[in-house]
Amino acid sequence: MLWNIDLTLVDVTIVTRDAYADAFRQVTGRPLVKLAPAMGRPDSEIIFETLAINGIVTGDDHLPRFIDALARSFAARRKRLNKDGQVMPGAKEALKAVARLDGVVQSVLTGTIKSNAALKLNAFGLDKYVDVEVGGYGEEVYPKATLLQVAQGRVKALYGFRCDGANTVLIGDSARDVQAARIAGASMIAVASGRSTATELHEAGADIVLPDLTDAPALVAAVAHLTTPMDRKAG
């Protein structure tokens, strides 16, 4: 089970925007005028577009410098996550319910860089339900579908499970999450808690669309529908 983080499990948009503005200033020496929209994209892609739309000619060192600055800026604001952010309704109960399924490994497939993803999960006590070491993250410059396959490889290497499209479920809130699952051959449970509507998620090809995560039994039933007992025991 791979979970998207932002607007699926947590909403820390205000803190993220502030961290981006600070990182931009550190890297360019200029104030941030416009931040590229997330739309389910990885931080690496958002960084490049943000630099471009603010008139910065990028060089080979811009991405690593920006990622380092973003990690520092976000970490400096970690105490604000609970104050200015929130866990999405039902997220913790959903993670707990899925964790009870036999043979399930839960991790994340997120556009957020790894260090910031860990801080987001930890701030709301969600980190205990996922193995962050086998996830896919925003500093890894892959298309999201390829990143999903990278995460599958990490699960297989660490846990020894057969890990392919037949026993992988992605849970996310954006049409881009759905597209990544489709390309990678994984099942997709979409949650209409972000900026993509239920109709858009259906049209993108989600297997199942839920309004939110508040109905944990419905989520577990969706997982059961998309996998088989043998698949779950195999990973």
Rank of each mutant, 00 (worst) to 15 (best):
T28K: 04
G40C: 10
P211I: 11
H62Q: 02
T199L: 15
V105F: 14
G125P: 00
K128H: 09
G205A: 12
A224Y: 00
R80D: 08
Q149I: 08
I183L: 13
I208Q: 10
R182W: 14
A71P: 03
A221M: 12
Y129C: 10
G136K: 04
R80I: 00
I14W: 07
G90E: 13
M230G: 10
L158F: 10
L170Y: 04
T228V: 06
G138W: 00
R195L: 13
K233F: 14
P31W: 06
Q26P: 02
D61S: 05
A224E: 09
G153F: 07
Q106K: 01
A118V: 06
V98W: 12
D43V: 03
M88T: 09
V134Q: 12
N82P: 03
A206Y: 06
T58Q: 11
A76G: 05
G172H: 13
R17N: 08
V223K: 05
Y129I: 08
T146H: 12
L148H: 14
L147T: 11
A157H: 13
K156N: 14
G111H: 08
V155Q: 02
R232M: 06
L2E: 01
L63S: 00
F161H: 03
R232S: 06
K128T: 15
V57P: 03
F66L: 00
D127L: 15
A190M: 05
I47T: 01
N82E: 12
S107Q: 00
A166P: 03
W3V: 05
S115T: 03
L9Q: 03
P211C: 12
E49S: 09
A94H: 13
A190H: 07
A180E: 13
D231L: 04
D127N: 15
A75V: 09
I171Q: 03
T28L: 11
L109Y: 00
R80F: 07
Q86S: 09
M230Y: 10
A224G: 04
R77H: 04
S73W: 04
P89F: 10
V15P: 01
P64Q: 03
A157W: 07
A181L: 12
A221E: 15
R72F: 01
A151Q: 12
R41Y: 11
D61Y: 06
T8H: 08
N54A: 03
S187I: 00
D6M: 08
D231E: 05
E45Q: 11
T28Q: 06
A123V: 08
L226G: 04
V191E: 01
I67L: 14
T227Y: 02
V108G: 03
D60R: 12
V155R: 01
P229D: 10
R154N: 14
Q152M: 08
N116Q: 02
P31V: 14
I46Y: 04
A234R: 12
T199I: 13
P42F: 09
R72W: 10
M230A: 15
V15F: 02
H202K: 15
A36S: 11
A94D: 14
V191Q: 05
K128F: 09
I171T: 03
A216C: 13
R154T: 13
K156R: 15
A91M: 13
G205K: 11
A21C: 07
N116R: 02
V178P: 10
R195C: 11
I183W: 10
A166C: 04
V209D: 10
K144S: 12
E45D: 14
E49M: 15
V209K: 08
L9G: 14
G153K: 07
A36R: 01
S73I: 06
